[in-house]
Design a protein around this nucleic acid. Structure first.
Length: 109
DNA sequence: TCACTGACCGTGG
DNA sequence: ACCACGGCCAGTG
């Protein structure tokens, strides 16, 4: 009754993304791997698509694919918002790709 | 109701 | 080195 009907793993994705420190980025696979085998990169991507309904707002701009490419930038309010947010945090982005992606990559633990 | 798609990643040939 | 496929959940047509 008190239990939410929403899948738990989706909530875990939001919490994980919110844990990403400012100026850092994470990949879908890393998040999915840390959440559990029940989630895969695709599930994380799908969850992020619904992240706009999650509250508070999830910093999806800190989540990119394993290539460091801003694959989800088209899903933001504006196609450049993701890059703007990343650059505002000190993350340099070039051609929709994060510069020194590995250097900004953050991993839980 | 059934089937396909989706902000992906890893492995095999 | 490149190309193709499978896997997992939920929502939509």
């Amino acid at each position: 009754m008190s239990e939410p009907k929403t899948p738990n793993w989706i909530e875990l994705v939001y919490e994980m993304v919110r844990k990403i420190p400012k100026g850092r980025v994470c990949t879908y696979g890393t998040i999915a791997d840390h959440i559990g085998v029940k989630a895969t990169s695709r599930m994380v991507g799908w969850a992020m698509n619904a992240s706009h309904r999650a509250k508070p707002r999830v910093p999806a701009h800190r989540v990119v694919n394993r290539n460091g490419l801003l694959t989800g930038k088209h899903h933001f309010e504006t196609p450049t918002l993701m890059q703007e947010l990343l650059e505002a945090e000190g993350v340099q982005v070039m051609d929709d790709k994060i510069v020194d992606f590995k250097k900004h990559l953050w991993q839980p633990g």
